[in-house]
């Protein structure tokens, strides 16, 4: 306790300033992005203080008929959600099921095989499979399935669940079985609540990574009807050079939901990192 009351030396003041400075650096791009999305079009990129505020950029995104398609941006946002939500749900369910089978089914006679498959898969970078995967799935071009199916199972998520289940005592699961609960009841009433901490981490990470995916979505769903928000911004990247305001607005719409989602769960997320390091 005494240490805290100790007098502050110059070095402490210097480090405090450095801390504030680095926080500013890490948040400045977000501030800049949001600011440019709400200033008048004549001042975009010409100011770093809020003045001449206007919602023209957002208005353009959702109401302008310039592109001939007023729904384009809103639909892209919807597409992003329609892809990310199923992918995240499947990744979580598969992680839970495989994690449970690998750790809590004591007499499951295939653990070793599955574990080796997982390790083998982790060994190869994904880019190696890009072309053949595209060839297998090119019949699903411009469908949600084409974007969802190849990304919905995450080896990383499975490993996270396996590691987490290993920390849970077997006795709880044994006891439930002795009491006559069937496997599905055990999964629903014991495994799911018990793994909530790791579910938060896997949920946030999978959702964020899927949300920010670019290359696969660009390849498999190039039609504007199916483009995700991330892809749509990248295709409009150079087309709005004269008036970048709407691009900033779209970037804010792309970024803010993820940031808010994380801020809501930030506590669980940090606990999860502690777990991952053990």
């Amino acid at each position: 306790m005494k240490k805290i009351l100790k007098q502050r030396r110059p070095i402490d003041i210097f480090l405090d300033i450095l801390t504030l400075l680095l926080i500013l650096v890490s948040l400045f791009p977000l501030y800049y992005m949001i600011l440019q999305s709400v200033v008048d079009w004549t001042t975009v990129d010409k100011t770093i203080i809020p003045k001449n505020l206007s919602l023209a950029s957002y208005d353009y995104l959702f109401h302008s008929t310039n592109s001939g398609d007023t729904m384009m941006w809103l639909r892209a946002l919807g597409n992003s959600l329609l892809v990310c939500i199923p992918v995240t749900l499947v990744a979580l369910s598969v992680g839970l099921l495989v994690g449970y089978a690998m750790t809590k089914l004591k007499h499951f006679n295939g653990k070793r095989i599955i574990f080796n498959l997982l390790l083998f898969e982790m060994f190869f970078p994904k880019i190696m499979l890009l072309v053949p995967k595209y060839m297998i799935l090119k019949d699903l071009a411009n469908t949600y399935a084409g974007m969802i199916i190849p990304t919905m199972i995450s080896t990383w998520a499975i490993f996270m669940y396996i590691n987490y289940f290993e920390t849970l005592p077997n006795e709880v699961f044994e006891a439930a079985r002795v009491d006559g609960a069937n496997t599905f009841r055990i999964l629903y009433h014991i495994a799911m609540p018990a793994t909530l901490p790791i579910t938060t981490i896997v949920f946030l990470t999978t959702f964020m990574q899927r949300w920010n995916e670019l290359m696969w979505d660009m390849l498999i769903a190039p039609s504007t009807r199916f483009q995700t928000l991330n892809v749509l911004i990248s295709t409009r990247f150079n087309m709005m050079a004269q008036h970048p305001g709407p691009l900033y607005a779209a970037s804010v719409i792309l970024t803010l939901p993820i940031v808010i989602l994380f801020l809501c769960f930030s506590r669980n997320f940090r606990e999860g990192i502690h777990f991952m390091l053990k």
Binding site: L22, I23, S26, L27, P29, L30, Y32, M33, Q36, M208, W211, N212, L214, N230, I233, S234, F237, P244, L247, Y248, A250, S251, V252, L254, T255, I258, V259, F262, L263, S266, R270
Partner: peptide, 18 residues
Amino acid sequence: SVLFFIPYLTSGVAVSVM
């Protein structure tokens, strides 16, 4: 630590626009 972590959440596309 959360404030420093926020950049990691941003999409490369959004940051490239900026």
